[in-house]
Computed example of a mutant assay.
Amino acid sequence: MEITRYFEDIEIGESRETFGRTITETDFVVHAGHTGDFFPHHMDAEFMAKSEFGQRIAHGTMVFAIGIGLTATVINPVAFSYGYDRLRFVKPVFIGDTIRTRVTAARKEDDPKRANVGRLFEKVEVLNQNDQVVLVCEHIYVIERKEAA
């Protein structure tokens, strides 16, 4: 779906939430293969059975990638991702957990380099099936202003 929303159209506090996605063992294996991260924390069930978690934990980068991917449902042709800041892995995610993502417009600022755009800072929270935040970060968008259109 494509929806054009300019910088001025975004209201602080507006929020949206994605559908859920259950994490599988296949996700662990594929992510390890893509990244080369075969640490026992993610791949060795016997090693992790003796840990405080009692089982393998998902790669934080995988939870980030899937959590952000869940938000990719609307295309705004006048907005572009500028990146992510303040990424934290708050709680572990396990095989069988279902995650979803909540995105909230947190603040807006002028772009220091370009007058025709502004910056939107979104709070991104990935939640598990128990409504616990497992990952949090800030997503920064560069969005055209109406006057520039």
Rank of each mutant, 00 (worst) to 15 (best):
E11W: 00
I12M: 08
G13Q: 07
G13T: 03
E14G: 07
S15T: 15
S15N: 01
E17S: 11
E17Q: 10
T18K: 03
F19D: 13
T22K: 15
I23H: 05
E25N: 15
E25A: 02
T26P: 03
T26R: 13
F28R: 00
V29H: 01
V29S: 06
V29M: 07
H31Q: 00
G33Q: 06
H34P: 01
H34R: 02
H34S: 03
H34L: 13
G36S: 05
D37W: 08
D37A: 03
F38R: 02
F38N: 06
F39C: 01
F39D: 09
F39N: 14
F39M: 10
P40F: 02
H41I: 10
H41T: 12
D44I: 08
A45P: 14
A45H: 12
E46I: 11
E46R: 12
F47I: 03
F47Y: 15
F47M: 08
M48R: 10
K50T: 08
K50S: 07
S51F: 09
S51P: 07
E52V: 13
G54M: 05
G54V: 15
Q55I: 02
R56S: 06
A58M: 07
H59N: 09
H59V: 07
H59K: 00
G60V: 03
M62R: 02
V63E: 10
A65C: 06
A65H: 04
A65E: 04
A65W: 01
A65K: 03
G67S: 00
L70K: 09
T71S: 14
A72T: 11
T73V: 12
V74K: 13
I75G: 02
N76W: 00
P77C: 06
A79T: 06
A79Y: 00
G83E: 13
D85V: 09
D85S: 12
R86Y: 09
R86T: 08
R88W: 11
R88S: 09
F89Y: 15
V90R: 15
V90F: 07
K91W: 09
K91G: 04
P92F: 15
V93T: 11
I95Q: 02
G96T: 04
D97L: 06
D97C: 07
I99T: 07
I99H: 10
R100S: 13
R100E: 06
V103G: 10
A105P: 01
R107L: 05
R107G: 02
K108P: 05
E109G: 01
D110K: 14
D111A: 10
P112W: 11
P112A: 12
R114I: 07
